[in-house]
């Protein structure tokens, strides 16, 4: 009897683990960490509307920090090198190569926020089946918006390493807006750093673009009132926009996954004001003119969201 009870006790937890489906949030959390912690190399296909590009990514982290190199394989040979949170982008333009310095972006497969908690308020996660991507088994996780203020996502996470194999963004009609999917991915076994350098074209001039955005104080003339649910302000800068003589204020909002930029600038005489709404692929635009200011909202979010953010701007009398 005692032996039987012991057997039951031992078997019980194992049985529970097997029966219980995986927690989708844990799968996403693991995927977010894996993208930063693991060393991997692969080629993924980026697709947005009619644009399709193959991109090579090499990422290394052996406890000395993150190093990555990303090379666009189709069309203009853009490439990007990053060390920690510093990024340099090399883009050839005619006889020049422009070098841009940026803060780190979330680049595939590192598209999920480090703190998954931030997206729990706005999205519901649901576990799906197992599908094969790039020759590997991927666990499907659906991320559905709780309202109509953001798009839906579907992720495939490697069952062994946790790394995202594929990411898909869908609109309300379940149509693909943006997709990134590995066609091949391997773990890097050695610590060789030979790959960490740009491909230098000696026939071209390398030009470092000056920093065009400066952190900005709160503006005194206007405020942004009630934001759409789940969105919060993360950055405010004054920056130059090509073709504009005076700096423009840019405020960036995010719900943890999607991001929206609000541009505000005083209307200059002779400049044609813009109004209305439009869309291009996953990006929605909203423009309005109030109190002599041009307001422009741009983001990979539904049209309702850009309009709500644009309308939230109020001017102090």
């Amino acid at each position: 009897m005692k032996r039987f009870l012991l057997a039951c006790l031992l078997a019980a937890p194992i049985a529970t683990v097997n029966a219980e489906p995986e927690d989708p949030w844990l799968v996403l959390q693991k995927a977010a960490q894996a993208a930063h912690d693991l060393s991997y190399k692969g080629v993924f296909v980026y697709q947005s509307g009619e644009n399709v590009k193959s991109v090579q990514v090499t990422h290394m982290n052996y406890g000395q920090g993150e190093y990555a190199r990303v090379v666009v394989l189709d069309g203009t040979p853009r490439e990007m090198l990053s060390q920690g949170s510093d990024v340099v982008i090399f883009s050839p333009k005619n006889e020049k190569v422009i070098m841009e310095k940026r803060r780190a972006h979330n680049l595939f497969p590192a598209v999920l926020p480090n703190t998954i908690e931030n997206i729990k308020v706005s999205y519901k996660a649901r576990i799906g089946g197992v599908e094969r991507v790039a020759g590997r088994d991927g666990r499907v996780v659906f991320l559905d918006p709780k309202d109509r203020l953001r798009y839906a996502y579907k992720f495939w996470a490697d069952r062994e390493y946790g790394l995202l194999l594929k990411s898909l963004m869908l609109n309300e009609q379940n149509q693909m807006l943006e997709q990134m999917t590995f066609s091949q991915v391997d773990m890097i076994e050695n610590q060789d750093m030979d790959w960490f350098h740009p491909n230098v074209d000696h026939g071209k001039n390398y030009i470092l673009e000056e920093a065009i955005a400066q952190p900005a104080q709160e503006a005194s003339e206007w405020t942004v009132g009630a934001l759409p649910a789940g969105y919060r302000k993360i950055q405010q800068v004054t920056r130059l926009v090509p073709g504009k003589q005076s700096p423009v204020t840019q405020v960036i909002f995010t719900d943890g996954l999607a991001s929206v930029s609000l541009f505000i600038e005083p209307l200059v005489k002779g400049t044609r004001p813009r109004i209305g709404q439009t869309a291009k692929g996953a990006t929605n635009f909203y423009a309005n003119v109030t109190n002599g200011y041009q307001i422009l909202v741009v983001g990979e979010v539904p049209s309702t969201t850009v309009a709500q953010i644009g309308s939230a701007v109020s001017f102090k009398k």
Binding site: T271, T283, L296, V298
Partner: peptide, 26 residues
């Protein structure tokens, strides 16, 4: 100086400015 519908001319410079700073932009 007459207002123009934004759909007539997409503000590509602002889209680029958005993409370059918003962290979720692959």
């Amino acid at each position: 100086a007459s207002p123009m519908e934004i759909a007539q001319s997409l503000p590509a410079d602002y889209l680029l400015a958005h993409q370059s700073l918003a962290s979720s932009n692959s």
